[in-house]
Design a protein around this nucleic acid. Structure first.
Lengths: 239, 239
DNA sequence: GCAATAGTGTCTTTAAGACACTATCAT
DNA sequence: ATGATAGTGTCTTAAAGACACTATTGC
């Protein structure tokens, strides 16, 4: 019997037909009370000229996981790393890519609009698209379905965590968090309920600063570093 | 400029180095009040002779998704399709497989022990391993980590749905569901709370039959066909 | 009848919903 | 002082936890 050592020495990965493997990300942000997705104009086939998700092939030398690929591709388009990045699902099949049987590992990401604007403003092939306008847009591949899955994940998590803070700048007010939550869920939430959760989460600290909004000044908060996202045992807007 | 048609005609998928792609599943069941995972003894390199998850390569001709691959591989080992099958996550990196940079799309599945026993009893390279005994077992690849992720998913979902019914036979009693839930969560749950959820879910119908268990007969229930799993807005065992 | 398991009634507890209230600021 | 936004108090409501109770069966 062949030893494992010998087996590995003789192993030729290209012996078997293999699917096309890519990584794509759905990056959300909030801008002017609208939930937006990052889209990139395709500069090569297939779907040349259409808008699609930021992503591409794994660089087997640079990337030590598909997460690294996702982060690298997002950094190329936005100039920075997303403040939240978690795995969504893989989409696969013989027909989703005209080049053949393919599989894409997808990632779900959040970032503050302000944090990427300096970079995005300088390029023309990247845009924030309000999710409300997606209907009227033809997207490459099955990217519309991927965005739909990401949106569902975002809405679900917004009901049992304060994840929307990852769409906000480093310091933010409770009202901004409320607006973010409402933009994501598409309906108003009780301010009091949100603030109760805000306190119970233990995730935030007062910066001591406050900001004028036209009336009474609002306190500015920031996320405590290295605290995991608190998961509540009930959903908001349960009915 | 080349047309998309021409581009596709000339496209050679093997031009770029590509990761090794596999599909693995974590199939759980319940047997004698113990939560168990299906393991397969590896009959080839790498990790020849070790136990690992059921899975393997995608058959680009037979499978029209990684779900199909997962279902096919599970059917080979158990004789039947799992009653629950959902995607878990992908695990990827340069070191998880000694053959090189690899990615595995993993699936999370549930089945009734009774339903596969006829098939499993006939083969020696497949076994149900109680999750409590996993510690002491060396598993192939990063399969221990994959099982840990699946367990976490199972426990989480058990807190806000009645998913454990997919580990039970076609007809079952409320007590069996309670035992399944307790085996998964590793602690007792209030019978009353479970029965309230059972009714509220609208997922079940009385078979009209009942079964003797040594004392008062228990009613037998079955899942209504084509009803999606009900998600509760609160968790059990929240504290 | 008795022991054992199936199944119900009902009080308590927890956290969200509703909404009126007070606080602070710019003008 | 007024209006606007920030932030609090507190009552109601929904669903889980606790646990005692009744029901049905085999012996």
């Amino acid at each position: 019997m062949e030893s494992e050592e010998q087996y590995l020495k003789n192993y030729d990965a290209s012996r078997f037909p293999s699917p096309i493997v890519t990584v794509d990300s759905v990056l959300f942000t909030l801008h002017e009370k609208q939930l937006c997705v990052l889209l990139v104009k395709r500069n090569q086939h297939p779907f040349l000229g259409l808008w699609g998700l930021p992503g591409g092939f794994i660089d087997l030398h640079k990337d030590d996981s598909t997460q690294a690929t996702a982060a690298r591709k997002l950094a190329e388009k936005t100039g920075i790393s997303p403040s939240w990045l978690e795995q969504l699902e893989t989409f696969s099949g013989p027909n989703r890519d005209p080049r053949g049987w393919s599989i894409t590992a997808t990632w779900f990401a959040l970032i503050a609009w302000e944090a990427c604007q300096p970079h995005i403003a300088t390029v023309s092939d990247v845009q924030w698209c309000p999710v409300a306008n997606l209907e009227s847009k033809a997207l490459a591949f099955d990217h519309a379905a991927i965005i739909a899955a990401a949106l569902q994940r975002l809405r679900q998590k917004t009901m049992y965590s304060l994840l929307p803070v990852y769409c906000l700048p480093e310091t933010f007010t409770q009202t901004q968090l409320q607006e973010a939550t409402e933009a994501i869920l598409g309906q108003p939430v009780q301010r009091k309920s949100l603030i109760r959760r805000f306190e119970a989460s233990g995730m935030f600290e007062d910066t001591g600063q406050s900001v004028a909004t036209g009336a009474r000044k609002a306190r500015l908060w920031r996320r405590k570093p290295n605290i995991p996202v608190h998961l509540f045992s009930r959903n908001l807007l349960a009915d």
